[in-house]
Amino acid sequence: MLAKKLEINKKDENLSSKFNIVLIDQNEMLLDLLDHELTKHKGFSVIRTSNGVELLNKEDLEPDLILMDMIMEGVNGIELIKKIRSEDRFAKIKIIILSEKLNESIVEELKSLSVNDVIQKPANIGEVIFRVERSLKHQI
């Protein structure tokens, strides 16, 4: 991990290729668009799923950031974040919420679960990408 960070400090343009991002959303088209932007134009490595439980079941997966909706199959968004935070391998992972169902109390709850950023849908994709990059830069 340290070696990864040092390399990034040396050459910032290589930043993207060093990070794995997991996308969780039920809207296939939005997943397609985010996947396209993050991989083709920014060079991130992206894993996509419509179901958060799959993420927990993949033991070899070590993402750097999760960009997720609050609504998904099988589990509620808050429950999933709690489960993610309870696992050691995900303890320092960055989480960004991209959701329509947001209000003050949900945002407060998300903050208490150490969520790094919250974006209201419908969102400008340029802004989403910017916030993803910003969160990952803070990790360095």
Binding site: M29, P122, I125
Partner: peptide, 15 residues
């Protein structure tokens, strides 16, 4: 169809 699906989810300049 692709564009309509996108419009439900995106905003701002993307929209």
């Amino acid at each position: 169809e692709v564009c309509s699906d996108l419009l439900n989810e995106v905003g701002g300049e993307t929209k």
